[in-house]
Design a protein around this nucleic acid. Structure first.
Lengths: 242, 242
DNA sequence: GATATCTAGACGTATAGACGTCTAGATTCT
DNA sequence: AGAATCTAGACGTCTATACGTCTAGATATC
């Protein structure tokens, strides 16, 4: 049995998971409907119950099904925005929605890190950082002032790149850091004079302020960003799980 | 062995998970450091390897540790705000930070659902909903105007409950709906006259506006909420993964 | 010295069985 | 009829074992 598995190179639990997913997404199993019991599935696929459970566990993580102790496993409601908790960037999101995107580089400099930034990036105060200030347009309307700080030591060559057309994240990857996680703080603020001018809004207009740290796969902080978004042109959707 | 477990009522894998968490948070195991192998842990705690794996799996989900196939299990970067992608409510968050919380019920009524709300709650336009409007205080300062809509049919008895001292979520659970997921949209807005009065701020002051749908475990939408937060007193932190 | 191979250790997948606990519905008793 | 109890079925926890696969470092080879 085990050898058969290896021949195809796909673990049983993955096969079962995908089989169940297909049943659900294909509509054979509808919202709220009970899956066969773990015991039944085990017999049906000729595997042990633990293996079935492992497959189902993945589907639970995805929110596709849920278990009720003593009752059974059921298909969950397939709500559209299941994956809005995923980290995406401005360019990805906008282009997926058919919005044209541009960036204008306002400022680019290397300087010593202030305390706040050094702490966020886990470097020493005074270590060199690259500061990248861009103004971002959606359909030719200025929407976001973006101020990113990255450790100079990680990305020395970054200064030679074209920062208007390439997204920072793809550059990070080129230097070996794959973006994995972002922790971001959101606030509502008022536009000051500079913002008002840049974003072509009134002074005091609402701004969705976002402060975030981006981490690579291994936990290295690669970017600290202040992001000022026009309140009337920008909203953010996230999904949270309990 | 198994009976011992039951005597204390806590599964082994939970004990092991918490023991490891304590080691990590207590600083005995530092960032990047290798945990004892699963084998070793199994011996150490007198359980089987699968049980250890189950405990570790939870910590991986939390992002506290990560596994490397063929190498070992390691402590991940302990970034402070790790669990901010978890869904929590106002009361939980605030009380964890030692802030006193109060709610004042402003309005409670049953009415037919408007189109926007019906769609979000997956009910028919005109179906009855309960509208619960509360003003929430943190340390006696009004911070949030909270306007929740719940399907009347799900929670008929809700009207008899004390909505100022009990949190809605605990009430949902009492009626058999466990809160699982929230999809929320965030925007920056200006305070209108009503908000300005209620939140004791200037008209036009920035508001962090949050619109969200809360889903139960089985995917049923149980609550649709408009949430107006004082920009100067409220910020929201989320973690996103790629 | 550089390269290829081997190997120990660690995680990955899987089994078959056992007992615990919970839920809903059936049964029994009042 | 209503309440208390019982029970079958389903998920929850756990074991002891086995073999697969991967990684890093040691060893051997060129």
């Amino acid at each position: 049995m085990f050898v058969l598995d290896k021949k195809e190179g796909i673990p049983f639990y993955v096969k079962i998971r995908e089989a169940l997913r297909a049943e659900i997404e294909g509509g054979n199993l509808k919202r709220g409907q009970k899956l066969p019991s773990e015991e039944e599935l085990a017999n049906q696929y000729g595997v042990s119950r633990m293996t079935v459970r492992q497959g189902i566990a993945d589907l639970i993580d995805e929110g596709l099904v849920y278990r009720r102790h003593g009752v059974g496993t059921f298909v969950a409601f397939p709500h559209v925005e299941r994956d809005h908790s995923r980290l995406t960037n401005f360019f990805e999101t906008a282009s997926k929605e058919g919005i044209s995107v541009q960036a204008r580089l306002l400022d680019l400099e290397v300087s010593p890190a202030r305390q706040r930034i050094a702490k966020a990036l886990d470097i020493a105060e005074g270590d060199l950082i690259i500061r990248i200030k861009t103004l971002r347009y959606a359909d030719d309307v200025p929407v976001t002032l973006h101020e990113a700080y990255v450790p100079h030591v990680l990305f020395v060559k970054l200064l030679e790149e074209d920062l208007e057309t390439q997204h920072l994240w793809t550059l990070y990857e080129r230097y070996g850091y794959r973006v994995k996680r972002a922790v971001q703080k959101l606030e509502a603020r008022e536009a000051d004079h500079e913002l008002a001018v840049l974003l072509q809004i009134e002074e005091g207009a609402p701004i969705l302020f976002k402060e975030r740290v981006i981490y690579a796969e291994d936990g290295t902080p690669v970017e600290f960003t202040y992001c000022y978004n026009r309140g009337d042109r920008y909203s953010l959707t996230v999904t949270l799980e309990r």
